[in-house]
Nucleic acid binder design. Structure first.
Lengths: 259, 259
DNA sequence: ATGCCTTTGTGAACGCGTGCACAAAGATGG
DNA sequence: CCATCTTTGTGCACGCGTTCACAAAGGCAT
């Protein structure tokens, strides 16, 4: 979900499309594209739902927000639906994107082939390290952070990707926003503060793993319920100053490896 | 969210902890760790909520599921809370992880420093490319896919990360599950089917960007509402066989660059 | 043309998640 | 020991999202 401080009332529905539905449209589109390639003319809600990994009723309701694009007794026309969803998602136009922070992750993102395939185009790669300047990554020359504003302005970029260490994320974010960017995909493990009107979505490997660990522990714990608390570090009252030196801070490292 | 076909009734709450709360615990933990490093003894729900980017009432309710760890009139003991959340998330134990698919992304993940910091340890790197076998990535030798089962078994791995191209994802997933893995973090742009009891979480750059594009388009569209549909590719009835050759399939490419 | 069969589109019920607002609890100072 | 002030913990209401279940709609065969 969009983090930061831009809580659109969830009633964000532009023309009435629920946020949850919007999040699933790309899933449907992917499944439909696959069908399209196999030249499948039509598909039923049941089949498509199965391919997308969702409930068929949910899929039908999702599509109902877009309009009545199906034919009762038959199903949906694949090509037509691909077009409608693409249009709804804004994929019929070109979206220049800038990637800031060309470390391991930033480079991997720059090399991501699926980027260009859906209307997204890497307009520029930016990094604060001067020694990277000019060096080509994925066929694109890395530019210095100083060029950020100019690059955004010249290319009319509205979407920025932050792949810097956590410590630099907010600063980069502020500059991107000031330069006119209104949508940010954040890979740094930080909560970004952005002004009203700017969308932020975050991808955080660390969090995903921790959630998995929680469930994993629960699965294992069901068999061994006897293991309660092992050795609490002094209860709240006895606050104490037991400075923890273990578990190094990951708060200053990007979620998926930076520079 | 966990995709695939393992819809736990959302009432997954192990001891009553809502899924939404579990997803926020890592966020709180990160903020608390930062405070801990600055040797801040206690923190109020208001302050911590602000740092984590959430509502203070929500934070208090979240913590209430863990127990009454706060002190009225004072706040929460930072150290104590760090311990409690860590324990709840299962971060007090070691979680060996295997990464399958050592392409751009896989390598970036392997290099991710924050991995080890929170109880996660990269036990092995696996790739189908024989030419990679033995080559060290992030200080760990890459092993061939043939070793998958053995590696999982020998190290007692229960969490697997899939960073392969979409085409190989399901197959890798099946092998991981068969080998005994019960939690999967999927970076490939595919819906994975897994048996009951296996958790799958997915990270998909392509989807995130498309969601941003949707909102971006909406922002721009508010000013220019006159632009309705431009040129639909024939309505459903006139299905036609207008094979789309543009927008290459991204269905066979991993979300964040593979090998 | 008529009836049957398939599949959509959606009304309605339900449950989870969120946020408000306040009572209870504890700390603190006199 | 009491009054006051701060902050937690939570009851309650509201709204979004999900799912069921079915009526309406269209194709197709006879």
């Amino acid at each position: 979900m969009a983090t930061g401080r831009n809580h659109r009332p969830a009633t964000s529905r532009s023309r009435g499309i629920p946020e949850a539905t919007v999040a699933r449209l790309p899933l449907y589109l992917r499944a439909l594209t696959a069908l399209s390639e196999r030249s499948v003319p039509t598909v039923s809600s049941e089949e498509l739902a199965s391919a997308a990994g969702v409930n068929s009723a949910k899929l039908r309701k999702d599509f109902s927000y877009l309009g009545s694009y199906g034919t009762r007794g038959v199903g949906y026309d694949v090509e037509y639906l691909v077009y409608q969803i693409s249009r709804e998602l804004g994929l019929t136009q070109d979206w220049p994107v800038v990637i800031v922070g060309i470390g391991n992750l930033g480079a991997a993102l720059a090399n991501y082939g699926g980027f260009a395939s859906r209307g997204f185009r890497v307009a520029a790669l930016i990094d604060a390290d001067p020694s990277l300047s000019g060096k080509p990554v994925a066929g694109i020359g890395v530019q210095h952070t100083d060029e950020l504003e100019k690059v955004v302005d010249d290319n009319g970029v509205s979407i920025g990707v932050i792949a810097t260490p956590a410590g630099a994320a907010q600063q980069v974010c502020d500059r991107l926003v000031a330069a006119g960017i209104t949508s940010i995909l954040n890979f740094a493990p930080t909560v970004l503060s952005v002004p009203e009107g700017v969308d932020v979505r975050k991808v955080d490997l660390s969090i995903e793993l921790q959630i998995l660990a929680f469930h994993e522990q629960r699965k294992a714990g069901e068999d061994v319920p006897a293991e309660e608390d092992t050795a609490p570090p002094a209860a709240p009252p006895a606050a104490s100053v037991t400075k923890r030196t273990d578990s190094g801070p990951d708060g200053d490292l990007p979620a998926v490896m930076p520079a």
